[in-house]
Amino acid sequence: MAELPSDIVSYLHHLASTQRKPAWMRSTGREQAAQCRRPPDSLWPDGPDRGKQVGDQVYFLEGLFPLESERLILPAIQTDSGLPADLHIFILRMAITCSFLMLPNRSCNRD
């Protein structure tokens, strides 16, 4: 983001980390869960358990792996929670892990 002014970069960082309250997960190269953080809104119900296939445990990830490119973005996914979220999946080649980021988008909530 070298082309963005620093105050805008800071704003975007604040927006993503505090207001959007991201949920994230990391998996190994074989799509086995390694680390995760679920937000209080519970974009997915349980887990995932470490060492197990993420697609088996987080049902909306079924079929998405292996990635065909370094990044996959699926906007406005609404699951049981009723809260739409943008799903970003990207590969950290150096760590040979796959990271998942879900950014809840409350602006899509219906009244």
């Binding site: 049902y59 909306f60 699926l74 406005a76 609404q78």
Partner: peptide, 9 residues
Amino acid sequence: LTTVGVKVD
């Protein structure tokens, strides 16, 4: 209610 994005069940 028109669906926005995708709903997964």
